[in-house]
Amino acid sequence: MTGDPRTRHVVVMGVSGSGKSTVAKGIGTVAGLRFAEADEFHSAANIAMMRVGVPLGDADRWPWLRDLAAWLADRSAEGVSTVLACSALKRSYRDALRQGQPAVEFVHLDGPAEVIRARMSGRTGHYMPPSLLDSQIATLEPLQPDERGVVLDASMTPDELIAAALSRLRLGSGHERHMDQAQPSI
């Protein structure tokens, strides 16, 4: 699938509690991209497992990733640019997302475990318990040099992260529609 070359597709990635949803919503609002929360695509069984502190395995994630890739492909076919808040912890998961839209750009929110754990402990209404943070950190594979994207310090404020992502990806202010590969940096 190649999708509409006039669209942009951004995935804000990182472990739970890194700020993905807040930053992705902000990017979507400023740049006019359709926002989706990957957590809303999880099956009831996956949510039940996480709620009780059981980490998901690859077999649990593949149907979810296929659904996300299909969502990206459908929006691209409609000519709609998107921003998706999704953990995308492994290279293979990011490859699966690229099956829906090969030119996905990633914004990896990376930060100290203590900062992220504190955020997770302070939030309410989310099914992902802080006890699963260590399993997510162990699973996380950083962006590779051939992956389009940037790495930002999750310790920054949400407004700083949104501004940095918009600037680095050249979104939201009339910048070129497609960027050259950006080298990840913190």
Rank of each mutant, 00 (worst) to 15 (best):
T2M: 12
G3V: 00
D4Y: 05
D4Q: 03
P5S: 07
P5W: 05
R6D: 13
R6F: 09
R8K: 11
R8I: 04
V10M: 14
V10C: 13
V10W: 13
V10H: 12
V11A: 15
M13L: 13
G14F: 12
S16Q: 05
K20Q: 02
K20W: 08
T22E: 15
V23R: 13
V23I: 06
A24L: 02
A24W: 05
A24K: 01
I27V: 14
G28L: 06
V30N: 07
A31K: 00
G32W: 10
G32E: 11
L33E: 06
F35G: 02
F35Q: 00
A36T: 00
A36S: 10
E37V: 00
E40S: 11
H42P: 05
A45L: 08
A45R: 04
N46H: 03
M49V: 01
M49R: 06
M50V: 04
M50F: 14
V52N: 11
V52E: 15
V52P: 07
V52F: 09
G53T: 01
P55M: 03
G57E: 12
D58W: 05
R61V: 03
W62Q: 08
W64M: 02
W64R: 04
L65Q: 03
L65A: 05
A69W: 09
A70D: 13
W71P: 03
W71I: 02
L72T: 00
D74G: 09
R75H: 14
R75P: 06
G79F: 08
G79W: 09
S81P: 10
S81W: 08
S81T: 00
L84N: 02
A88I: 00
A88C: 05
R91H: 14
S92L: 09
S92N: 06
Y93C: 08
Y93D: 06
R94Q: 09
D95K: 05
D95E: 15
A96H: 08
L97M: 11
R98K: 10
R98F: 13
Q99D: 14
G100Y: 11
A103S: 13
V104M: 12
E105I: 02
E105A: 06
E105D: 07
V107P: 15
H108S: 14
H108R: 10
L109C: 10
D110Q: 08
G111S: 10
P112E: 15
A113P: 14
E114Q: 13
V115F: 10
V115H: 12
R117S: 11
R117K: 09
R117A: 15
A118L: 13
A118K: 09
S121P: 03
S121M: 14
R123N: 11
T124A: 12
G125I: 05
Y127A: 14
P129F: 06
P129Y: 05
P129R: 03
L132G: 09
L133P: 05
S135E: 03
Q136D: 06
I137E: 08
A138T: 01
A138F: 02
L140Q: 07
E141K: 02
L143P: 08
E147R: 04
R148I: 00
D153V: 02
S155R: 13
M156I: 00
M156L: 15
T157D: 14
T157C: 14
P158Y: 07
D159N: 04
I162N: 11
A163N: 10
L166H: 05
L166I: 01
R170E: 11
L171M: 14
L171Y: 00
S173I: 02
H175C: 07
R177Y: 04
H178V: 06
D180C: 00
P184Y: 04
S185R: 01
